[in-house]
């Protein structure tokens, strides 16, 4: 026979456990939304150009600074500034491809990787010289506001907004790739570069567009996380390995896969900090990464034989 007090305690305890679980699940889901966008950008570049872009984190960092300066100098809300950031970043990526990456597109993988590492070093250290190493904090009126649902689970307002925007952008991107001529050409290039070329697709232009898209997506991810994170020349490095993991998890080149992959990584991180320990969560993510590589190298959403 359970006494009344103990029973109430047990109910309360169960309630705490449930709140705990959902709090962890939802905050992981929302953080995962931003990871997803970074992963999708990486995946587009990977798919079309077959390049591991190690400068992806640094491109994200540039997005953060763009959002910061749009907010502090032009007084534009970070979410609104995306309208400015997306085209600027696209152009920047397009030019980077034309000037640098284009020249080594037929070189071995490792040279491509090292080139992107070099470009990343140039970007982050130029930022260090220009903006100093003082982290910038983008404080909006809603930076630390939250809504409470189900009487105990709090959700960050800026992360919720970011999540909605991520879904929107992913949707638009999906439509672009599946419905427009350029999108279909990009998709064809990612399926088979040589065949696409034979069919009259300008594959070198497609590469530049893909890198522009990847850059725009990375910068968007940076801008979206800026209000809830801090902005620093090396800030992108945290997200680089996550973006790789997401992109492999979803299947190289798969937009939807990377989207889902991002959310999964967000939730896994959150759950492992809650139920395991926060200092081991990255290890859990890497073990999942290796597991996917070994047992399903085409990724969760890739077709067999696409590797």
């Amino acid at each position: 026979m359970v006494s009344g007090g103990k029973f109430l305690q047990a109910v309360h305890f169960k309630g705490v456990i449930m709140t705990f679980f959902f709090q962890s699940l939802l905050s992981g889901l929302l953080t995962g939304g931003v990871y997803a966008l970074a992963g999708i950008g990486m995946s587009v570049v990977f798919g079309v150009m077959n390049i591991s872009n190690f400068a992806h984190g640094d491109l994200m960092m540039l997005g953060m600074y763009m959002a910061y300066f749009a907010f502090t100098l032009l007084h534009i809300d970070p979410y609104l500034s995306l309208l400015l950031i997306i085209p600027t970043a696209f152009l920047f990526g397009f030019l980077i491809e034309k000037v640098f990456i284009h020249r080594i597109i037929h070189h071995p993988h490792q040279n491509q990787i090292l080139l992107t590492i070099g470009l990343g070093l140039i970007m982050s250290n130029t930022a260090l010289l220009a903006f100093t190493s003082d982290p910038k904090i983008l404080t909006t009126s809603y930076s630390s506001s939250a809504v409470t649902i189900f009487g105990g689970i709090s959700l960050s307002v800026p992360l919720l907004l970011s999540f909605v925007i991520t879904c929107l952008i992913t949707g638009i991107l999906f439509l672009f790739l599946s419905k427009t001529t350029t999108g279909l050409a990009l998709w064809a290039t990612s399926q088979n570069r040589e065949a696409a070329q034979l069919m009259g697709i300008n594959v070198s232009k497609m590469s530049a567009i893909a890198f522009g898209l990847g850059t725009a997506l990375a910068a968007t991810a940076g801008a979206l996380i800026a209000p809830t994170y801090y902005i620093h020349p090396m800030a992108g490095h945290t997200f680089l390995l996550k973006a790789f993991t997401i992109c492999v998890l979803g299947g190289l080149g798969s937009v939807v896969g990377a989207g889902v992959g991002g959310v999964i990584i967000g939730v896994v991180e959150s759950m492992s900090s809650t139920y395991l320990s926060s200092d081991w969560k990255d290890v859990v993510v890497f073990i999942i990464f290796l597991g996917v590589l070994l047992f399903r190298p085409q990724g969760l959403f890739g077709k067999k034989g696409e590797q």
Binding site: S27, G28, T274
Partner: peptide
């Protein structure tokens, strides 16, 4: 006792444990 890796965007799970 919550030790964390620097530079992560989400510390909510650790803080929720502390709150509890």
């Amino acid at each position: 006792n919550e030790k964390y890796q620097q530079g992560q965007p989400d510390y909510r799970p650790s803080l929720s444990k502390v709150k509890a």
